[in-house]
Nucleic acid binder design. Structure first.
Lengths: 146, 146
DNA sequence: ACCTTACCGGACAATTATATCCTTTTATTC
DNA sequence: GAATAAAAGGATATAATTGTCCGGTAAGGT
């Protein structure tokens, strides 16, 4: 599993927001999760973290809601992951060794390096705008089978 | 985090075995974890699963221990992961949707596809032999800082 | 046969991740 | 300023993962 459940919700929630917020740019949680299987309460917690990390802005009270803090093309997957989970899948040693760097690398280090590099590139360069564009080019994707 | 802790231990344990078992090909757990930070009890559980999955063979009693069930170049990272954890990082939708396939793909599907492909290739083609070779070309890697 | 050895397996404890509930705070509307 | 609306935050519940312990089982040595 590449992303934690928390990160998956963050990505899905932000995609909904970027794709559906429309002109007003802001959406309430209830509105956002409607028609999806996103768990409202848990997503609320995740969104709180995204607000603290500066990815989202929020407004309380009547007429409040969440909005992107920056244009979608300035929000990378990497930023989302770090905001939601606190660290990235490309940080640290693959097999969990404390001491693992160029001078003292673990057995997988050199072998995994190109993958890590490419994965990092992907996470850095793919943005919410890309996700929204990809979403727009398909029929709205269904929430869950059954 | 690409691998779960369980998988990380599996990789490290098997690497130790492949790299240090020497002529007799078999090692006891106590011998294997000596000089490492691998937790003996937990690794024992992981190795049990690897035995059931056919990656390792084991022998009880005096003179017993664990040995690779196949030559190192026939044990891929993918097999290790599936044996240790039951599923692979490239299976299922990246953002956790139940319905996500070619005809009804999630927003990240097409964008992530090349990465998934490459990661899958890496996991399928990298074997214990590669890890052991990589290990042999460096000084024995230390277990932990401090 | 008996003793020692080393993996097996079940039970259990600790930690983390996930999920929900409920009160408080902040803003808007009347 | 009272009522209402919506996010913020604390507390708590549930589940999964990780880690430990101990008696059982099988193998070898004497």
């Amino acid at each position: 599993m590449l992303y934690s459940t928390t990160t998956q919700y963050a990505i899905r929630g932000l995609s909904e927001l970027a794709g559906r917020a429309g002109a007003k740019k802001s959406m309430m949680l209830d509105e956002l999760v409607a028609g999806t299987t996103l768990p409202r309460e848990f997503l609320a917690k995740v969104f709180q973290r995204l607000v603290k990390a500066g990815v989202l802005t929020s407004l309380k009270g009547r007429g409040g809601g969440f909005a992107l803090a920056r244009p979608p093309h300035e929000i990378s997957l990497m930023q989302i992951i770090e905001a939601a989970d606190g660290d990235s899948p490309v940080s640290g040693c693959v097999i969990g060794l404390d001491r693992c760097d160029e001078s003292m690398a673990c057995p997988q280090h050199d072998l995994y390096k190109p993958i890590r590099q490419r994965l990092g590139d992907y996470l850095e360069t793919t943005t919410l705008a890309d996700l929204a564009a990809s979403l727009k080019s398909k029929p709205a994707w269904p929430a869950r089978s059954g």
